[in-house]
């Protein structure tokens, strides 16, 4: 399978700020790829480099096999983009903007346009200045999903949508995947990412810190275990991968790296287990761990 996006060692600075500091990213054709990271991690900068709006200082990037800077127009014919902050012209109606974007790219499926306007409950006759944030995003989303682009780049596209519209959005992304499109989804909404994405990349301070399928990533996280033992716990402390160990009499609470779970369970059963609760890792914990590290 060919890659829709390949990025390696991308650097971009603005004055003294290093927005991208050796970013790597690979997006397979036909997958929905989650692009995650705390605020200021460089997600939007990376997307703007991929769109040829910014010129990278160093590193290589290919989008749909093309150079995003020199072949920008050629690449854009096959890309649809929804920015995080959609600003519209105050005196153009939403319908006019959707059609303008469609024609500028080179075509728009009118049946799908009508269908999407219906599903997103968008009033296309309102002027740009009278739309709310969510409705401005819907204008850009309708334009993107009604296009016949091969790659759809979404930069936090749902921050203004209500839960109902969020569900419509998720269905639209699934339909795009079913039609064989590639989607790069930058998002903060973890349930959305868990629901939609085949693979995710997490970036922090302009660098990729994790990348892989959700199952791969879950493997990297910790399971929390609470056990009520028959006797005093023994031999837990020296075990690798055990964190936040808390022993109160016969009661044990700990966190364990998921790949070390087996050893911990064996140690516990030596003392006799009366009850055991184990909570599987959530994406949220994984993200919190990465987000918090960036704060340090």
């Amino acid at each position: 399978m060919t890659k829709a996006i390949t990025v390696s060692g991308l650097h971009k600075s603005f004055g003294r700020t290093h927005a991208l500091d050796g970013l790597d990213l690979e997006v397979e054709t036909g997958e929905v790829h989650g692009f995650l990271g705390p605020n200021g991690a460089g997600k939007s900068t990376a997307i703007r480099v991929l769109l040829g709006l910014l010129r990278a200082d160093a590193g290589a990037a290919r989008v749909l096999g093309l150079d995003p800077w020199t072949d920008a127009v050629e690449a854009h014919r096959r890309i649809a983009y929804v920015p995080g902050e959609v600003t519209l012209w105050r005196n153009l109606s939403g319908g006019e903007v959707i059609d303008l974007y469609g024609r500028l790219r080179g075509g728009l499926d009118t049946a799908r346009r009508a269908d999407l306007i219906d599903r997103f409950e968008l009033d296309p006759t309102k002027k740009g200045r009278t739309y709310s944030k969510g409705n401005r995003q819907k204008v850009a989303l309708v334009a993107a999903f009604a296009s016949d682009a091969d790659l759809i780049v979404l930069d936090e596209p749902t921050s203004g949508l209500d839960p109902l519209m969020e569900a419509v959005f998720q269905r639209c992304v699934e339909e795009e995947r079913d039609r064989g499109r590639t989607v790069l989804l930058s998002s903060h909404i973890l349930s959305e990412v868990e629901e939609l994405c085949d693979r995710v990349s997490i970036i922090r301070s302009g660098r990729t810190v994790e990348t892989g399928s959700l199952a791969d990533l879950r493997h990297l996280t910790r399971t929390s275990v609470t056990a009520e033992l028959a006797g005093a716990p023994d031999g837990l402390t020296p075990l690798p991968g055990v964190h936040d160990l808390d022993v109160q009499g016969h009661r044990v609470k700990l966190q364990v790296d998921t790949d070390q779970l087996d050893a911990v369970l064996k140690a516990l059963t030596k003392s006799g287990v009366r009850s055991l609760t184990s909570t599987p890792p959530t994406l949220e914990e994984l993200f919190l761990r990465h987000y918090e590290e960036s704060g340090r």
Binding site: S93, E96, D99, R103
Partner: peptide, 14 residues
């Protein structure tokens, strides 16, 4: 209040 605009547009070039 602002009057509504057309639901479809004819603008097609920059």
């Amino acid at each position: 209040p602002t009057r509504p605009g057309p639901a479809a547009g004819r603008l097609g070039t920059a």
